[in-house]
Design a protein around this nucleic acid. Structure first.
Length: 585
RNA sequence: GGUCCCGUGGUGCAGCUUGGAGUGCACGCCGGCCUGUCAAGCCGGAGGUCGCGGGUUCAAAUCCCGUCGGGACCGCCA
C-alpha cells in the first residue's frame, strides 16, 4: 500500500494467514496480561484488528503506532464474531511508536451517552476518528460523487463562480469582506451563485452546475449553518418539467448510494394544497394528521372567538388518554407563541347513549350542530384529541402546521424517505402595507405562471393570487432546495420590476449587469439548487447538519476549535481602512 | 428580537422538588498483580471554583436575580 503499511486494519482476513504485515493506526484498546502477553486493538478508518505481543506493551490509548507481525488464525475458542477481523490476529508483533498521545478528552467508542457538542467540536480532530463521523463524512463524499456523475452524465458542465462578489441588498444578510484597494468598499460572499449561473446561460454554457458553497449571515439552526453546500444548476431552452427531471435524477443517484434503491417518481403537490392540507410549504408527508377545513361550519356562529375568516382543525388519533391537561395548556401556550389567539382542544368521548361527545372548555359556546359538524368533518373517534384554530388563513394554517409537527412528527431516523415537489408557489408573498407594493416570494427574475400573466394588471388581491413557475424539493419536512423558470424577456422583466416598485436606476445599480446581459441574447432558462448538507443528513438519518460537516460552527456562530470569529489587530484594520465603533451602552 | 431546556472531577449521569461537610454511580486516568483477552479481570490511588457573579440564610450544587456558554424552536433565512 505504502512504504509504511501493507494493508488496512479492517482488511486483514484468513486469506492473509502466514503473511508478515505492517499495519498502522491508533491504539483503540489494549488488554495486558503481565510481562508475557498483551493484546492491542489497532484501529484505522476501515476497522479494528487484534495484535498480539508476546511480552509487555508500553502503549496508551490513541497512540499512533506501526505494528509488524504475522497473520494467523486465532486459537480455537478465541474467535470474536463481533469483529469483522475476528477470525484472525496479527501474531508476534513488533511495535514502533510513531506518536504518543494524551488520553482523549472524551471516549471514542459508543459506550457512553452523547458527549457535549462543544467538547467534541473543540477537539474535532479526535471526534472525527469516531466510526460515526467517519461514516458520515465518507458517505457525504460518495453522495457528492454520485451527484457529480449524474450531472456530468446529463450534460452539465461544472463551472466555478466567484466568492468575492458585489453585495445585493435583497435576500439574506450578506457576509462582507473589506477591500484593501478601495477602503470603504466591500465584497460580499455569495448567498448563492444565482446571478452568475444565469450569466452562464447567456454565455451559452447551456447546462451549468456547481457544488457551490453558499454563505448567509442569518441565525443558525439544526439545519442551517452560515456556510453550506448546494448542488446549484441551471439549464437553457428548458422548462420546469425538464428541471424537475434532471434534479430528480441527481437526487435519485445520491439516495441510491445510501439506500441502494431508486426513489421512484417524486410526488408533487401544489403550494396551495400543501398549505391547506399540511399548514406548511415544506410538508412532512411521512404521516397524516392533515388540516381539515371547518370555516363553513361556523358561519354566523355565536362563539365570538370563531368569527374568523379561517377555521381549521386537526385530529390526533387516540391521544386523549395519554395527554394531560398540563400538556394541553402547554400546547395552547405554544399556539399563542406561534401567533394564534388561542387553541381549542376537544377530547372525544362517548356518552351513555353511545353518541360521541366533544369534551372541551369551549363546547358550551358551540351549538350541537357545530359540534357534530366538527366531529364528523374531522372523522372523530372515541379517544381522539381534536385541535381547532380560528384566525386569518395564514395564521390558522401556520399554527396548525406547527402543532401537527409537534404532535405527530416521526423521528428523523425512521428509515422513510418521502420526497416531494411543491409546485406553483405564489409569485408574491404579500402586499407591503407601507408601500402598497407586492413582495417577491422567490426573486424578481421568477417567471409567472403562464395562465396568470393577465392578473399582473389586476388588483392587489389578484396579484397575491398570481402563481409562479417556482418549485421546491422537500424531503421529510425539510426544504432541500428551490428553483424556478427565469424571466428572459426584458419586457416582462420590466413589468415585474415596475410592479415591485424598483426604479430603473435602482435596478441598474442592483443587478444591472444581469439586465444588460439579457439584452444580448438570453435563452429561456430555468434552474434549481438543493442543500447537500441537508440531503446527506436525512439520508443518514441524523437530525443535525453539523453531524455531516467536518468543522461546523455552533448555534451562535463560533468555532470552539479555532476560536473564530476573532478580533484582528489595529494594523490589519488600518490596512483595510476600518475602525470599530466603541461598544454600545 | 423572543420562548424553552441544559451546565456537578477527563467523559456520561444521579443528587436540586423538601438547603445541613463535595455525597453517589459508571467509564476513563495513574500504580500494582496477572500467559488468550476482546467493554479483559482483581487490588489500590489520584482527580472538583457544583459555568461565573451577586442575593436570601446560621448554612446554598440545591432557593432568588443577573450573566456567560451550549442546544431546540419562533421571528429571520428573496
Amino acid at each position: 500500500m505504502t512504504n509504511m503499511r501493507s494493508l488496512m486494519c479492517g482488511q486483514v482476513d484468513e486469506s492473509h494467514v502466514g503473511e508478515e504485515l505492517s499495519l498502522c493506526g491508533w491504539v483503540a484498546r489494549r488488554r495486558e496480561h503481565g510481562e508475557h502477553l498483551a493484546f492491542i486493538d489497532l484501529r484505522d478508518h476501515t476497522g479494528v484488528v487484534q495484535c498480539v505481543v508476546d511480552g509487555a506493551a508500553d502503549l496508551r490509548s490513541e497512540w499512533v503506532v506501526r505494528i509488524t507481525g504475522t497473520v494467523r488464525n486465532r486459537p480455537e475458542g478465541t474467535v470474536n464474531d463481533q469483529l469483522a477481523t475476528g477470525a484472525v490476529e496479527l501474531g508476534g508483533c513488533a511495535i514502533e511508536v510513531l506518536s504518543r498521545a494524551e488520553p482523549p478528552p472524551f471516549p471514542l467508542d459508543d459506550r457512553s451517552g452523547d458527549v457535549d457538542e462543544v467538547v467534541r467540536l473543540r477537539h474535532r480532530y479526535v471526534d472525527l476518528r469516531r466510526e460515526e463521523m467517519q461514516r458520515n463524512l465518507r458517505t457525504r463524499a460518495r453522495i457528492v460523487g454520485a451527484i457529480r456523475r449524474s450531472m456530468d452524465e446529463q450534460g452539465f458542465v461544472e463551472v466555478e463562480t466567484p466568492l468575492l462578489i458585489a453585495s445585493t441588498p435583497e435576500g439574506a444578510r450578506d457576509f462582507v469582506v473589506p477591500s484593501r484597494h478601495r477602503p470603504g468598499s466591500f465584497y460580499a460572499l455569495p448567498q448563492s451563485p444565482q446571478l452568475f449561473k444565469q450569466l452562464c446561460m447567456v454565455g451559452g454554457l447551456d447546462r451549468y452546475y456547481q457544488i457551490a458553497r453558499c454563505l448567509r449571515d442569518e441565525d443558525l439552526r439544526a439545519d442551517r449553518q452560515f456556510e453550506f453546500t448546494q448542488l446549484d444548476a441551471e439549464m437553457s431552452f428548458a422548462d420546469q418539467e425538464d428541471v424537475l427531471e434532471v434534479i430528480s435524477a441527481a437526487v435519485d443517484a445520491a439516495a441510491g448510494t445510501v439506500t441502494g434503491e431508486a426513489i421512484g417518481e417524486v410526488e408533487r403537490m401544489r403550494w396551495v394544497d400543501a398549505m391547506n392540507r399540511f399548514g406548511s410549504d415544506k410538508p412532512d408527508i411521512r404521516f397524516g394528521m392533515e388540516l381539515t377545513e371547518l370555516t363553513d361550519l361556523f358561519v354566523g356562529t355565536g362563539f365570538n372567538a370563531f368569527t374568523a375568516s379561517s377555521i381549521k382543525g386537526i385530529r390526533h388519533p387516540g391521544a386523549s388518554s395519554a395527554t394531560s391537561r398540563t400538556r394541553l395548556d402547554d400546547l395552547t401556550d405554544s399556539a399563542k407563541r406561534w401567533g394564534a389567539k388561542g387553541l381549542v382542544w376537544m377530547r372525544v368521548e362517548t356518552g351513555d347513549d353511545g353518541e360521541l361527545i366533544l369534551n372541551s372548555p369551549v363546547a358550551k359556546f358551540m351549538t350541537d350542530a357545530e359540534l357534530s359538524g366538527v366531529a364528523q368533518r374531522l372523522g372523530a373517534e372515541e379517544g381522539d384529541l381534536l385541535f381547532l384554530v380560528a384566525d386569518d388563513w395564514a395564521t390558522t394554517t401556520h399554527v396548525l402546521g406547527l402543532l401537527r409537527l409537534e404532535l405527530g412528527r416521526p423521528p428523523t431516523d425512521d428509515g422513510v424517505l418521502r420526497f416531494l415537489w411543491v409546485v406553483e408557489f405564489p409569485l408574491f408573498e404579500t402586499i407591503d402595507p407601507d408601500t402598497g407594493r407586492p413582495v417577491p416570494a422567490h426573486h424578481p427574475f421568477t417567471m409567472p405562471h403562464p395562465d396568470d400573466i393577465d392578473l399582473l394588471d389586476g388588483s392587489p388581491e389578484q396579484l397575491t393570487s398570481v402563481r409562479s413557475q417556482a418549485y421546491d424539493l422537500v424531503l421529510n419536512g425539510w426544504e432541500l432546495g428551490s428553483g424556478s423558470v427565469r424571466i428572459h424577456r426584458s419586457d416582462l422583466q420590466q413589468r415585474i420590476l415596475d410592479l415591485l416598485g424598483i426604479a430603473a436606476d435602482e435596478a441598474a445599480a442592483r443587478f444591472g449587469f444581469l439586465l444588460d446581459a439579457f439584452r444580448y441574447g438570453a435563452p429561456p432558462h430555468a434552474g434549481f439548487a438543493f442543500g447537500v448538507d441537508r440531503l446527506v443528513a436525512l439520508l443518514l438519518g441524523v437530525d443535525n447538519i453539523r453531524e455531516v460537516i467536518a468543522f461546523p460552527k455552533t448555534q451562535s456562530g463560533t468555532d470552539p476549535l479555532t476560536g473564530a470569529p476573532t478580533e484582528i489587530d489595529a494594523a490589519q484594520l488600518a490596512d483595510l481602512g476600518l475602525r470599530p465603533l466603541p461598544p454600545q451602552g
